[in-house]
Amino acid sequence: MITAERKPLEEILQSVSSFDRILIVGCNECVTVCAAGGRKEVGLLASALNMSMLKAGRPVQLTEHTLERQCDPEYVDELAQLVTGADAILSMACGCGVQELARRYRDKPVLPALNTKFMGAAERPGVWAERCAGCGNCVLGVTGGICPIARCSKRLMNGPCGGSGNGKCEISDEVDCAWQLIWDRLKALGKTDLYEQNMDAKDWRPAGGGGPRRIVREDLTE
């Protein structure tokens, strides 16, 4: 899941300061799940913006709408009517959603209200952690199902650095040492031999080193 969190209110206010009619658009996918841009967060932001604007003596007209998914053109089309009545669109989706809105509504400023963070999973309720870096060439099969690229702070591919202690990364006690996790898991699987093999320098082209990526499924294209 893509995770995101709301930008500081101050920054959002700054970005919408010159508009009178603002359409706030949420997304019912990932950002809803990570409590950043679902219907509820849209409501909270609208309320907060409204109050801030009132306080500043510059009331604005705010419209709330949450799409099923902001990164699909058909859903984004639904907004046409509302967009007409707005001076700017404030998107509470991830960067994909923001861009889809911008692509579809060319003449309207589209402003992001979220910072898109990473692809992650829920560690426990209310806590999400990075799990995948989208490198395009998965090595999880040899690293015991734990990704060293996304989860080692130094992206080490061949074992832990010298800063690993008590299972934690040198950068913070809050961060698990990915290689400790990998090692423990390999041990549990009886596959420590996988560790012994050196992993070659990675080809970063599938990770975007080869420019913006796309996937084409011929059978599904129209």
């Binding site: 019912n28 996918e29 809803t32 799940v33 679902g38 219907r39 829920a122 309720p125």
Partner: peptide, 12 residues
Amino acid sequence: SRCAACLVCVRA
């Protein structure tokens, strides 16, 4: 139709 199956309710 609105549910994102996010599990928040299940956990809460």
